[in-house]
């Protein structure tokens, strides 16, 4: 019996619920902490950005229309499916991270899974905490309700590859937004594996779209896209973030970035209902009081 040929995974982009190579047909090598070749990831193009935004746009209304309880169930399901593939996530985190030990990788993976559970719990509670009944000088009920902004374009932080991505993504989609995520350019593999778990977790197609490739090529079309309602530039370097913010301003797109405290990914401060609020718009409703 000879040695088996290796069966390696093709790391593809996740657009509209399907795993696709780039429209451009390109790929780029992803190297690990010890400069070893890990895989070739898809090198996405601006047309992939366009397709992903279109998918996110058409999924948004339906996702926001789900009950909060149902969105919570689905986020919890993501945690369940990730748990069943924990070893794979650990291995990917380990290979990607410089100086990462097995214990670190295991801890990061566990924290990422727990983060989904944490935000799943918030699905049917954040509106109560962030909104509410306002006292007004008149015979009216005055209610403030947080509503999702719509399509959120996200640039995932570079390293470590998994926990920061989940920490930024979960609060975006829990309220009913859909997301177009540019995975970390240096370590995109865990993001693709995350996409595979999302595809199995009852997350509707198009709610999360994950692109891989070069930031300086993908960020400008994403930031300038008129159909993107908010941008999370946490993973952008300062120069690119400034350019993206300029693009975003022209179409009145809200720009968000993680604060230094939020970048302490492993600690409590990195998870907060106010992160959900950052991607919500408050709607205020007046209603006459009856007698």
């Amino acid at each position: 019996m000879s040695d088996r040929l290796a069966v390696n995974k093709t790391y593809k982009q996740f657009i509209g619920g399907a795993f696709e190579r780039s429209e451009s047909g390109r790929s780029y090598p992803v190297v690990g902490a010890e400069d070893q070749l890990l895989a070739h990831a898809v090198q996405g193009s601006r047309k992939d950005v366009r397709d992903a935004v279109a998918a996110a746009r058409s999924a948004q209304e339906g996702w926001a229309g789900r009950t909060a309880y149902n969105r919570g169930q689905i986020l919890y399901r993501v945690a369940e499916v990730m748990e069943s593939r924990r070893d794979e996530f650990c291995a990917e985190v380990l290979r990607a991270g410089e100086g990462c030990t097995e214990a670190d990788a295991s801890e990061e993976t566990a924290a990422a899974i727990d983060r989904w559970v944490w935000y799943a719990g918030w699905a049917d509670k954040f509106a109560t905490v962030l909104g509410g009944a306002n006292p007004v000088a008149g015979p009216y009920f005055n209610l403030s309700v947080p509503e999702p902004v719509g399509v959120v374009g996200m640039v995932a932080p570079d390293e470590p590859p998994l926990l920061p991505l989940v920490s930024r993504l979960a609060p975006v989609i829990v309220s009913g937004n859909t997301a177009v995520v540019l995975a970390s350019e240096r370590c995109p593999l865990a993001a693709v594996t995350l996409a595979e778990t999302l595809a199995l977790s009852d997350v509707p197609s198009g709610v999360v779209n994950i692109l891989t490739g070069h930031q300086d090529e993908l960020v400008p079309p994403l930031a300038g896209h008129v159909a993107v309602d908010s941008l999370d530039l946490t993973g952008c370097d300062a120069e690119l973030a400034a350019e993206a913010a300029r693009q975003a301003a022209a179409t009145i797109t809200r720009v968000v970035s993680a604060s230094p405290a939020e970048r302490q990914w492993a600690v409590e401060a990195a998870q907060s209902p106010y992160l959900i609020d950052a991607f919500c718009e408050t709607k205020t409703v007046w209603h006459p009081k009856g007698r």
């Binding site: 366009r50 300038g224 896209h225 008129v226 159909a227 693009q247």
Partner: peptide, 9 residues
Amino acid sequence: DGRYQRRED
């Protein structure tokens, strides 16, 4: 304009 557009517009 160099920007992808939004159907709602």
